[in-house]
């Protein structure tokens, strides 16, 4: 671990009177797997949407690789090498699996007028896309219509797409939810292997066991504020975190 790849400072997002995210700051170091956890409505996905440019922050700064990144539009964030998945899987349903990957592969061309006319049907392009599918274990399904795949495969497809875009930073939004146990184990291995190739991973996770087992460090949000940050063992013992998840002692006594 060297310098921070992603540096988030005093980040806030208000929707009218609602403070969805309030002065949250943390760093993501190059090469680590950082987990963003917290109860429902804690502001995790809002935080992702701010990083990926879907929302503009109300206040605060985001630095990526030392450069200011807040307020840039989503496709520009993608061009900086940040790939993301979505909490609700959204494949391009009518395209085939391999075409879904090719859309993401197009990232090297969309910015250049001369290359936007080039074909995506060349052998080389398709072979590279198939290699990526092999890596996430979907090669056999390459020609299927993406909208018809089961959830576990869709999650892998989303990761394949995000990997082609995010060669520096990968944002995974609850990639494990709704998966069976074997699928969870396979996906954990995939994410570790992604980290081995030097890609930094920031993930939102609901499943505590997965988050504790997979992440190097955890950042805990509750009601839009950061309440803890540290190694999984430290977080497990942290009283504020236990309170946030299980409810305050007084409150449960009164009930």
């Amino acid at each position: 671990m060297s310098q921070a790849l992603l540096d988030i400072q005093e980040l806030s997002k208000y929707f009218g009177g609602l403070k969805a995210l309030d002065q949250v700051g943390f760093n993501v170091m190059g090469g680590e797997i950082l987990g963003l956890i917290g109860p429902n409505g804690a502001g995790k996905t809002v935080c992702f949407n701010l990083i990926s440019g879907v929302y503009r922050p109300t206040a605060g700064k985001i630095y990526f690789n030392g450069q200011r990144m807040d307020g840039t539009s989503p496709h520009q964030v993608a061009h900086k090498g940040v790939g993301r998945t979505f909490q609700i899987v959204k494949p391009f349903g009518t395209l085939s699996v391999v075409e879904n990957v090719l859309v993401a592969k197009g990232i090297t061309k969309y910015n250049r007028f001369s290359r936007i006319w080039s074909t995506w049907k060349s052998k080389a392009e398709i072979n590279e896309a198939l290699e990526m599918l092999e890596r996430v274990g979907l090669k056999d399904l390459a020609d299927r219509q993406a909208g018809l795949l089961p959830l576990g495969n869709l999650r892998r497809l989303e990761i394949a797409r995000a990997l082609l875009v995010g060669h520096k930073l990968l944002l995974l939004d609850e990639s494990f939810s709704g998966l069976r146990h074997e699928e969870i184990v396979q996906l954990e291995e995939l994410i570790r292997s992604i980290r081995e190739t030097g890609i930094t991973v920031l993930l939102i996770e609901h499943n505590m066991r997965v988050a504790m087992g997979l992440c190097d460090r955890l950042v805990v949000l509750d009601h839009g504020s950061k309440i803890a940050e540290g190694r999984p063992q430290e977080i497990q013992q942290n009283e504020k975190v236990i309170e946030a998840y299980l409810g305050r002692k007084e409150a449960s006594d009164a009930a």
Binding site: S52, G53, V54, S73, P74, H75, A78, H79, G83, R84, F86, K90, F92, G93, T94, L95, E99, L102, V103, A104, G106, I107, K109, Y110, N111, R115, I116, W117, S118, T119, W120, K121, R161, A162, V165
Partner: peptide
């Protein structure tokens, strides 16, 4: 056949996802 066409098809399905794939 063209990358532009693929981007158009992707955008017509889902604009936020197309953005996340680097498509303007």
């Amino acid at each position: 056949f063209t990358e532009l066409g693929l981007a158009m098809r992707a955008t017509s399905q889902d604009i936020p996802i197309a953005d996340a794939m680097g498509i303007n």
